[in-house]
Nucleic acid binder design. Sequence first.
DNA 1: CGGCGCATTAATGTATACATCATGAATTCA
DNA 2: TGAATTCATGATGTATACATTAATGCGCCG
Lengths: 249, 249
Amino acid sequence: MSERDSERSISQTVRAQLALRDMILSGQLRPGERISELQAVEITNVSRTPVRLALVRLEDEGLLQAIPSGGFMVKAFTERDILDSIELRGTLEGLAARFAAERGASARSLEPLKECLADLDQLVRQDPVSVEAFSAYVTMNARFHALLTELSASPPLIRQIDRVSALPFASPSSFVMAQSALPEAHQILLIGQDHHRIVVDAIENREGGRAEAIMREHSRLAARNLRLALRNRTHLDLLPALALLQSPA
Amino acid sequence: MSERDSERSISQTVRAQLALRDMILSGQLRPGERISELQAVEITNVSRTPVRLALVRLEDEGLLQAIPSGGFMVKAFTERDILDSIELRGTLEGLAARFAAERGASARSLEPLKECLADLDQLVRQDPVSVEAFSAYVTMNARFHALLTELSASPPLIRQIDRVSALPFASPSSFVMAQSALPEAHQILLIGQDHHRIVVDAIENREGGRAEAIMREHSRLAARNLRLALRNRTHLDLLPALALLQSPA
DNA sequence: CGGCGCATTAATGTATACATCATGAATTCA
DNA sequence: TGAATTCATGATGTATACATTAATGCGCCG
């Protein structure tokens, strides 16, 4: 094989998984479409064994759906499915925040979260937020949510949150970029950041209920962004995840 | 192969999965123990390809853990992990109940749930509850929870609940049988059944918050049962799931 | 002319041979 | 004697040939 060095070190299974995922998210494989193993073999240039494993992995991820008689098809999602997935993530992150608060996260363990919060503050401060700042926000925001999840110190919960967030439209940063095209962009960013501040404060003060509630509300900001983006239909190209929407996007 | 007819129709993958799961839950494979593919091949008498798929499936189920360098080991759980998993299920079932209430489950769709509730009432009524009644309660209880979950009418949520409940100690009926050995058995059964009644009532009256809260509390009954069973250490043989506990059971 | 049944085909399910990589033990050199 | 290196062993990763089952289209019968 004369692949690039960077691609030689990873396994065929992962390579196939990445290639197929890309094709699904980019819409080259349409929702409802059956995807045969041989077809996948042609696409990815790896043999059936790793392809099959990749398909199984993508099924757990939630991108594919097993057909009873065998094989897989690309899963289709309704707008309601997406909204529910966001609410689901919010609920789980709320639980994580409550655990962190009730179990007394140590001052030391809170430090990285606070640093992250400060970094986000820095980014949000500028009034016309540059595109680069938005991009940096997405990264930092993902880090904030990951740190918060870990603060729960609950492996089973962390696992579930990771599984929900694996869906491309359910992760904490899914619709932040879509925001950037909206007039209310800066406003929403400020509100979201205030939620971040509140949850850290609540955890510090052992206010479990408050921590839980604010994370639930926080996720509804993503729901709002989604709805706005769908209504305005501007810059929908920023949202590859919506290729999975079954009603015409 | 001269297997029994009932086993001839299912696939080798499923057969391997069942065999390995049994060995894990029965404690024949100990937590932390590495389980090689060849070893699994010897155990199950199927070839490596389906064995590997079975191992991957058991990993999603949460019974196995992938080793970074490759292969799998039997996952070990702490008591805290189990309690968190129960709280997690309660949280998700709470969300399901809230969805059902807020979205207005139809009278027709509530009927099966009410029938199930009545059946459970019947079983709980007898004062010294027979072992058979306990066993029937376990089945009916599982049905009640499944029906309630479906009432959410949210595929993403249903999927997550199913995934959490796949863990043998996180399913709604995990510790009901353990209860049967306790003096407080009947009392606890009555309380649990009252929770069932309340959640149906709350859904009917569109009381989302109440429905959510009661399901959360309901799961804590399972947590109580677990703790009681572990402290008393009587009839721990009723709980094969505890083979996964890493501290000496 | 329409529906049922059979044959063909193409898919998934399974087994095994081969390649590659991690691991551990033994030996040798400093 | 200790440590490092190398070799042997056994594991997982991959490819492919074979078996079996589901889908499809054609033809035949009613």
